[in-house]
């Protein structure tokens, strides 16, 4: 350093004067992380898997959600589906960057959320946007048994450059996992259209380590979700269930294993 430059004025703290990049110092600030909402159940309703299948599939699943509201606090997150794939296709053809595609696809998950919330409105359920989820979720869940939001994370133009291709990597499954972990939720359930992750004989496995899902093709959850599970502070597992099978969602909410539990490891 040259010249008589005055020192930065500091607010005293353990991290004062530091780059936040020194590993030892950052470690010293570590404390056990609180679960903000330890009673929260997070349910992700797949876009392609469930919502795109239309009323015959959506109505009975919504009835199951309605029946499960008593005594629970649910954060219902919706996936994007076929319209997101269409807008990705158009955007890619136009040469738009991944960060532009991310926001376009997220809009579709939001629209699906509005529809699911409207079906549950009479039970006190509303759609709430990202900012409200981040800051006023506790108030909303004190007033009503469930809220619906968009499972896509609010990455938009800040989506990461991807290792391969140009499709945004933070989609609904990853978004739900990041949010459930930040809130310290009790459970995370992905409602898909398959019984879970299948073994060689075509039967759904009951428990699978996240590391085994990472390397496998044909996982019903986005690749990033099991990867993020390995680093999560609270979430030790999530369950993938078949939303086409009646009774699966209420049973999973009761803590039963009815699909595949993907766990840390």
């Amino acid at each position: 350093m040259t010249g008589p430059v005055p020192d930065a004025s500091h607010v005293p703290s353990l991290l004062m004067r530091q780059t936040l990049l020194d590993r030892e110092l950052v470690k010293a600030a570590e404390q056990p992380v609180l679960r903000l909402l330890p009673w929260l159940d997070v349910v992700v309703i797949g876009g392609t898997a469930i919502i795109d299948r239309g009323p015959e599939i959506i109505r009975p699943l919504v009835e199951e959600v309605r029946g499960a509201l008593r005594g629970r606090k649910l954060l219902i997150l919706t996936g994007a589906g076929i319209r997101a794939r269409h807008v990705l296709g158009v955007g890619l053809d136009l040469g738009l960057p991944t960060g532009a595609l991310s926001a376009l696809a997220a809009t579709e998950a939001e629209m699906n959320g509005h529809m699911i919330a409207a079906l549950l409105a009479a039970d006190g359920v509303s759609y709430i946007p990202h900012g409200t989820v981040a800051r006023q979720l506790a108030t909303h869940l004190a007033a009503c048994p469930a809220v619906v939001s968009n499972a896509y994370p609010p990455y938009g133009p800040y989506e990461f450059p991807t290792a391969a291709g140009r499709i945004p990597s933070h989609r609904t499954d990853a978004g739900a996992l990041l949010l459930a972990d930040a809130l310290g939720a009790r459970t995370l359930i992905y409602v898909k259209d398959v019984d879970g992750i299948h073994d060689e004989t075509g039967r759904a496995r009951t428990r699978v380590p996240a590391s085994a899902v990472l390397g496998s093709n044909g996982s019903p959850v986005d690749r990033l979700a099991p990867e993020l599970l390995g680093r999560a502070k609270h979430m030790r597992e999530f369950q993938i269930i078949n939303g086409l099978v009646r009774g699966a969602l209420p049973a999973a909410l009761d803590g039963e294993t009815v699909g595949t539990v993907v766990h840390v490891g």
Partner: peptide, 24 residues
């Protein structure tokens, strides 16, 4: 951010708050 962010991060981390709150 700078030194006020460091103070707030340090306080929030000491309280056991999650990364998401610190990000905000």
């Amino acid at each position: 951010g700078g030194t006020r962010a460091r103070h707030a991060y340090s306080l929030a981390a000491g309280l056991g708050l999650p990364t998401g709150v610190l990000s905000d």
